[in-house]
Design a protein around this nucleic acid. Structure first.
Lengths: 248, 248
DNA sequence: TTGTCGTAATTGTCTGACAATTCATTTGCT
DNA sequence: AGCAAATGAATTGTCAGACAATTACGACAA
């Protein structure tokens, strides 16, 4: 049963695609074992290197995992939320950094998405998530924090906010948007006044979520969005089109 | 300059990761040529197969492209929005189908996200996008349309709505959410009454967007969200936990 | 029963070879 | 000189064969 006699380009890519399609179509189900490399060689009538390169392509997308040994082989992988997070974040980060997406566009997207889960968060947040948010706010108030650490804490705060919606699909989608912004946010130098303002707004948001008032949550988040965009506009306007060396 | 002498597992994965990190860090910039396979062999002190498998992993993530010939080699790829779309859609689709995410959760996420760009769409939609929406509504009204074709048109409608926000980052993020829902939506059998109701709501949304009234757009979209969730609840409740064969 | 050994299956890696492709250079003809 | 064709070199794509590493399983002995 030789399958897939194709034409003129990159056999390993074609084989990978064939198997990927089979997984998407549901012809190969989770944890099912693929044929061994030797069998795939026969089936597609190619050498072993070619089959292996195809399998590595699939492994890179978390579609399969491999195991050595007698009962080993390649198995269809269950796409975990965690794997999907990582992929999303990598892709989003590269997308933003390689296409010189301006701060304002990215920021608008991020806050638009984030606002969509704020009301849900206000309804459903757990005490745990609330505690995380408070803890991050406290960290952000520490004097002597580097800008990078401040940004990292900011991301953690917003992830807790997003996770508060209790919808893993939402969390997954938002992960990319929130994390991918970090490199852009890192380009900003935060003044003491900036930090105070941001911490204040974070507190406002957290208070609203604790009180479970969706409207107030949304309003505070919107204020934060606006402040962030203004901050980006004033800090990044000088270096807008050129390379980014805000040294002098 | 032998780099990366590592320990006990999967050399090709480690090499791929090293190169990927270099790309993310910015040590390798877009369109820059990587060392040839032979050079990488020396640098990492491994065989050519190993290097090639590492490169295929990167190619599978659209991080590099390869070119044959004298001036060929592997080049850092610019992550295009289109590539990112595709990756997002594949990942999201598999994530939903493999983790038995229930219709309601997915639906909630999708409409929450979609509502976040509705106001922007109302402000910025182009005549083109408006026309696309009208055209899809018209298609959806055609009698004799299969459920699948109806769903496909639904997706096209919503993508036009999302694109109307004029923010490519938003469009990219939403692509996954909207497209990944399609298989779930396909499991529903749409009655004539369903279709009329949906077309009606689509028209309401489009009218609001044409009139550029954000509040009305949001309200109509929310009605559609609610109707969709109810529809899913009533149609899919019977087959909730078991396999999905709604044949009889 | 239990522990050890060997065998088979399978993936991971290396080496060497050749094919295909592409560019640069040289050669040859006008 | 100018242009076309042949040549060569560099590089990726593919194949074949070998060996190492890992794992499961059964056979055998204590």
């Amino acid at each position: 049963m030789k399958t897939e006699l194709d034409e003129n380009k990159d056999l390993s890519a074609q084989i990978a695609e064939a198997i990927r399609d089979a997984i998407i179509e549901g012809n190969l189900i989770v944890d099912q074992r693929l044929p061994s490399e030797a069998e795939l060689c026969e089936k597609f009538d190619v050498g072993r290197s070619t089959v292996r390169e195809a399998l590595k392509r699939l492994a890179a997308q978390n579609l399969i995992r491999t195991q050595r040994g007698a009962t080993g082989g390649a198995f269809v992988n269950r796409m975990s939320f965690e794997d999907a997070y990582d992929q999303q974040i990598t892709t989003s980060t590269l997308l933003l950094s390689m296409n010189s997406v301006d701060f304002e566009t990215a920021c608008e997207a991020r806050y638009a998405l984030e606002r969509s889960c704020a009301p849900l968060s206000a309804q459903r947040r757990t005490p745990d998530q609330l505690a995380t948010m408070r803890a991050e706010i406290h960290r952000q108030s520490q004097p002597g924090l580097t800008d990078e650490a401040f940004c990292a804490s900011d991301v953690a705060f917003h992830r807790a906010l997003v996770d508060g919606a209790g919808n893993p699909v939402l969390s997954y989608q938002l992960a990319g948007a929130v994390e991918a912004m970090q490199p852009l946010m890192n380009m900003i130098t935060y003044t003491q006044r900036d930090r105070e303002r941001i911490v204040g707004l974070h507190t406002e948001i957290t208070d609203a979520i604790e009180a479970q008032i969706p409207e107030q949550t949304d309003a505070s988040l919107q204020k934060l969005a606006q402040y962030t965009i203004e901050m980006g506009r004033s800090r990044l306007s000088a270096t807008a089109t050129g390379k980014t060396s805000p040294s002098e």
